[in-house]
Write a protein that binds this DNA or RNA. Structure first.
Length: 413
DNA sequence: TCTGGGGTCCTAGGACCC
DNA sequence: TCTGGGGTCCTAGGACCC
């Protein structure tokens, strides 16, 4: 059996954990740049605040009733680690699927209802974050069970044929894990509206109209597991850093500083993963939501002379790439720095004529990591990143880093 | 004034190989 | 008169996820 454990309204729950006066109030968390709504407390949902839409389009009278926050990923990542560590005490096999959910194996466990309730209460007590637990023979069904758990008392166990059949019968097809907008449209056009409708199609039909993913979904809905638990984290295939600027800009200096900043982040992430990139791609984008302005969307892929995760080297190549895609006459929204062709640090091949001295360069990078880890990101950085960073994203409603910054720890008087 | 960021997997088609 | 079969690898694009 699999369990899917998911934090309820995770970002909103993190924010109000340290603001008890907001416990029963509508809370909304916005995406980077304070753009879209990405989390809502139950009270905000009940008010009718929708998911994923731009905040500035929400009715002004609703806006007034809501406690608003910018995304604080430092806080969310730390709270996520606390939740995951607590879960790991209840089962050895945990697959962390995203910042706020994980799959765990409950193979061989008995008294599932009681065990899951106990785990749930303990995690809520230890972390303050509400969670829901869905249990079923496959991942797709465990996801489905988790959605049902959220509607009931926080735990839903689908451990018999009848319970599964009953659960899928009314389950809306677009709530199914793996069905997005396009598939929903397609399935609806064949008069398939629930998970039960889909499950009762012949396998041949599924093979004909969907890809292998659809076939897996079909098997999983029938209780046949095709998606094993993966408890080891695979090496990433690509590492990206990109952020919209705080404002649209045609200022090349700003864009170059941002590019240097994001390339620095990519280098840090590569080192954390113990990977080196052999390809680096730079993309420059205008705002597609403003079709009345001139549009531009162009990327360039650079083959690096040797695979690297060195900050100075990646920044230099990123800026070289930027110069090739930059054009005047546009207002730019965002630049992306994307590293691919990742290989393990220990397997870097140098070519015969290479003058690259990885060891010296990486001493500098290692020192940067050490200082920045201790004194905070950006303490030691390349001048290319700039000093004022006027292009930085907007975060008007940012909460303190309650759990990771000495100066922000709550005082109880 | 204002619309996120970072990933994964799959497929089709082209280039290339023997 | 007539020109194969069976692969691999790469890339772009589309779909999905949180």
């Amino acid at each position: 059996m699999f369990a899917l454990i998911d934090c309820n309204n995770f970002y909103a729950s993190c924010e109000r954990l340290f603001r008890p006066e907001l416990r029963l109030k509508p809370v909304v968390v916005l995406s980077n740049n304070d753009g879209c709504i990405i989390a809502r407390s139950q009270e905000a949902k009940d008010l009718g605040v929708g998911m994923a839409g731009p905040w500035h389009l929400v009715e002004p009278h609703l806006q007034k009733e809501v406690a608003l926050f910018s995304s604080n990923y430092t806080l969310y990542a730390d709270m996520s680690a606390r939740v995951m560590n607590n879960i790991a005490r209840y089962t050895p096999d945990v697959e962390i699927y995203s910042i706020d959910e994980c799959f765990v194996s409950l193979a061989g466990f008995s008294n599932l209802e009681e065990y899951c309730s106990r785990m749930r209460h303990s995690i809520i007590r230890n972390t303050g974050i509400p969670i829901s637990v869905g249990v079923a023979p496959t991942k797709v069904l465990a996801k489905l069970a988790n959605k049902l758990a959220k509607k009931h008392n926080g735990v839903c166990i689908l451990d018999s044929h009848d319970k599964v059949s009953e659960a899928v019968a009314d389950f809306k097809i677009d709530d199914l894990w793996g069905v997005g907008r396009q598939y929903r449209k397609k399935l609806n056009s064949f008069n398939i509206h629930t998970a039960g409708d889909f499950r009762s199609q012949p396998l041949e039909w599924v093979r004909e109209h969907l890809t292998i993913q659809g076939v897996r979904m079909w098997y999983e809905l029938h209780g046949k597991s095709c998606m094993p638990l993966s408890t080891v984290t695979e090496r990433k295939q690509g590492i990206r850093s990109s952020r919209s600027f705080g404002m649209l800009t045609n200022n090349y200096v700003f864009i170059e500083e941002a590019t240097a900043s994001y390339a620095t982040r990519v280098a840090e992430k590569l080192r954390k993963d113990k990977s080196c990139a052999s390809l680096l791609s730079i993309r420059l984008i205008t705002n597609i939501h403003k079709p009345e302005t001139a549009q531009y969307y162009k990327s360039i892929i650079i083959t690096l002379p040797n695979p690297t995760n060195n900050t100075a080297e990646l920044v230099a190549h990123a800026i070289k790439g930027l110069k090739q895609v930059y054009r005047t006459g546009y207002l730019f929204l965002k630049v992306e720095v994307f590293a691919t062709g990742l290989i393990p640090e220990t397997e870097v091949q140098l070519n015969l004529f290479s003058t690259y001295d990885g060891s010296t360069n990486n001493k500098v990078s290692a020192l940067m990591d050490k200082l920045n880890g201790h004194y905070g990101r950006g303490t030691l950085r390349l001048a290319a990143e700039g000093f004022e960073k006027k292009w930085s994203m907007r975060r008007r409603y940012l909460s303190p880093d309650y759990t990771t910054d000495w100066a922000s720890i709550l005082r109880v008087i």
